[in-house]
């Protein structure tokens, strides 16, 4: 592991400050997808970016936004490289990122997604039509409503507006909301 130089750290901060194209309340650093910036000469750099999901269509917009931000910072040549390993996890979302997600009306992912790996597939119990506890990752803390804070919420659909979210509803305030799924 090569220690980044002061300039690389500065450029990483610039790349990380770019807002996520789908969730503009979050920066790419808070989402945990910008891995490193390596200088390749005086005014040229390579950025390592990791996708949340393999097929995430936002990755191209992210690359262009990072390139634009670094060029505006004085770099002449910017290359954004997609890296898969180590695989991104929702554990990489910072605490500040989680707070912003909740404020935006999206229930943040619960901690410990990586620790849950290897526990899948698990047998699931099934309710009559919709499930309160049919979580793929097994027994975990409840998903709380981002609007009223209640921990009584139910799953409506495992897949929502994007691959990274599930659709849930609060049983107390009755509001539906997106939940950033643990990955």
């Amino acid at each position: 592991m090569v220690t980044p130089t002061a300039l690389e750290a500065e450029l990483l901060a610039v790349a990380g400050s770019v807002p996520d194209p789908e969730l503009p309340v979050l920066t790419l650093r808070e989402l945990g997808v910008v891995r490193a910036v390596h200088l390749r000469g005086a005014d040229s750099a390579e950025v390592e970016l990791t996708p949340t999901y393999t097929g995430c269509p936002a990755i191209e917009a992210m690359s262009m936004d990072i390139e634009r931000a670094l060029r505006a910072h004085g770099l002449r040549e910017v290359q954004v490289r997609t890296v898969l390993a180590p695989a991104w996890s929702t554990d990489d979302i910072s605490d500040e990122g989680r707070r912003k997600l909740r404020e935006f009306g999206i229930a943040p992912p619960r901690h410990g997604a990586r620790a849950q790996e290897g526990n899948v597939p698990v047998a699931l119990s099934l309710g009559p039509t919709r499930t309160l506890d049919g979580e793929p990752a097994g027994a975990q803390a409840p998903v709380c409503c981002p609007h009223c804070g209640s921990d009584r919420t139910e799953l409506l659909s495992r897949f929502s507006s994007t691959a990274c979210k599930a659709l849930r509803r609060c049983l107390d305030c009755r509001e539906p909301f997106d939940h950033f799924k643990e990955l």
Binding site: T54, P86, A87, P121, L124, L126, G134, R158, F159, L183
Partner: peptide
Amino acid sequence: FAPLAAKAVKEIAYHRDHAEQWTVRLGD
């Protein structure tokens, strides 16, 4: 294939879960 597989396995766990839920719901 290890780097892709490590990523894909987490996505596929959700696909399988979805299929299992529906199989049980329709079968039962």
